[in-house]
């Protein structure tokens, strides 16, 4: 044993190898079971995928770094459930590539934001948060309403998402660009068959209130409005009953 050790540290290669081994076993043992976790994740047969417009909105959420101030993960603690709604289930971020759970709440959690406010509220808030909430420290995002949404490459985006495992159909990919514009411009008829593809409870309307063009604001608001709404799984698991005991200690 000793001799091996002495040799080990004499041969730099062996040494490098030992580091690799010791370090990666820890990671492997902890991480490997997570790749079989799907067996233990709740089932959500009703789960729908993001529409192209919502996906574009999600990409804007990422681009602007909203995740730096907002989490999307309600923990199993009493006060959080009361403040934000049912705690987040693993299955709810099944199609989130990447996940946006976040690590800092400079602003409130957004996991269950969908349908909490009207579209007009969101637009007004994003244009000037302090007009809606005077003490807010959130930045204003006025350029979102100025920038027209670039959607001609949405089929490529959907295809990449399919490669990483999101079940987009060929029809969804083929119609992705039209669906993007059509969802935010319902009178245009651009998105024929949109509801058949994405389900009848998906939204199609003028999200930013501007009928002339489809803007980045349309996409972002469409995304914000479906947060926590892709599946009913959370409504079906009993809420408070599953809260952990530690949560009791959390109440004062």
């Amino acid at each position: 044993m000793l001799k091996n050790h002495a040799k080990l540290e004499r041969t730099a290669i062996g040494f490098a190898f030992a580091i690799m081994l010791v370090a990666s076993i820890g990671g492997f043992i902890e991480i490997a079971p997570l790749f079989t976790i799907s067996e233990t994740v709740e089932d959500a047969p009703d789960m729908r995928v993001y529409t192209p417009l919502e996906l574009a909105g999600r990409n804007i959420y990422v681009r602007e770094g909203c995740y730096a101030c907002h989490s999307q993960m309600v923990r199993t603690l009493q006060d959080e459930v009361e403040r934000y709604g049912h705690y987040s289930l693993a299955v709810e971020s099944k199609y989130d590539h990447p996940m946006l759970w976040g690590s800092k709440r400079t602003g409130p959690d957004l996991a269950r934001l969908g349908d909490k406010y009207s579209d007009e509220w969101h637009v007004a808030h994003l244009l000037n948060p302090r007009a809606v909430s005077p003490q807010s420290v959130m930045p204003a995002y006025r350029w979102l309403l100025r920038n027209e949404l670039k959607a001609n490459d949405m089929p490529l985006h959907l295809r990449a998402m399919r490669k990483v495992g999101v079940p987009y159909t060929d029809a969804m990919i083929a119609n992705a660009t039209a669906d993007t514009y059509g969802q935010a411009n319902p009178d245009s008829g651009a998105a024929d068959g949109f509801f058949e593809r994405y389900g009848f409870d998906s939204n199609s309307r003028y999200f930013d209130g501007d009928k002339r063009k489809v803007t980045e604001m349309d996409a972002l608001v469409a995304y914000l409005q479906i947060l926590g709404e892709l599946t009913d799984a959370a409504d079906q698991t009993a809420g408070a009953a599953n809260l952990e005991n530690d949560a009791e200690g959390a109440t004062q």
């Binding site: 044993m1 000793l2 050790h5 076993i25 043992i29 490997a32 079971p33 079989t36 067996e39």
Partner: peptide
């Protein structure tokens, strides 16, 4: 491997492995 097996390996052999690394480096 199913999830149970992997989790079980992690919890048992993981521990043994940890002891070996620890004892090994102290001896050295």
């Amino acid at each position: 491997f199913d999830h149970q097996t992997l989790a079980a390996i992690a919890k048992s052999y993981g521990l043994i492995y940890m002891m070996i690394v620890f004892v090994g480096s102290v001896i050295y």
